[in-house]
């Protein structure tokens, strides 16, 4: 009987889980990968050329939204859009920000795998409201 009691897993209360989740978040926010994302985002926001290129690209995309949905973008517009994309993605601050995003995502995917194994559900999919998990 004693052995059975000893083998029962310790139950973590909801408040305990939330406390551990907050500590986890603090640790994640202190990683070089997360700090790089914050730093590159600030650099991107403060880069006037990048902001202008971003606005120009967004404006063009919005203008072409309907024809893009209908798959009817003309050659001239397609080239103009490509040029704006090349300008935007060619900027160093944009590339640094995207690189930092990709690195953080890779790390978070590894975290997600560990959490998914622990709970028996795909953590990322379970957290997606309106997805295939409801």
């Amino acid at each position: 009987m004693d052995n059975l009691t000893l083998n029962e897993p310790e139950v973590a209360s909801k408040s305990r889980v939330m406390e551990v989740a907050r500590r986890f978040t603090e640790t994640l926010a202190e990683t070089a990968q997360y700090r790089a994302l914050e730093e590159t985002y600030q650099a991107f926001r403060q880069d006037g050329e990048a902001q202008a290129a971003y606005t120009a690209l967004q404006t063009k995309q919005q203008t072409l939204r309907m024809v893009t949905m209908l798959n009817a973008v003309g050659e001239e517009d397609r080239l103009a859009l490509k040029q704006l994309e090349d300008q935007f993605y060619g900027l160093k601050s944009v590339q640094n920000y995207i690189q930092a995003q990709e690195t953080l995502i890779s790390m978070c995917q590894e975290i997600g795998d560990i959490l998914s194994d622990a709970v028996g559900l795909n953590f990322g999919l379970a957290c997606r409201v309106g997805g295939c998990c409801g």
Binding site: K14, V17, A21, F24, A118
Partner: peptide, 26 residues
């Protein structure tokens, strides 16, 4: 790519989730 601190924090979270009443029921 994990620091020891991040690995410990992730493992703690995984453990506490797995040992929560809701996940144990599941």
């Amino acid at each position: 790519m994990f620091t020891v601190e991040l690995f410990d924090a992730t493992s703690d979270l995984a453990e506490s989730l797995a040992h929560s009443e809701v996940i144990m029921r599941f």
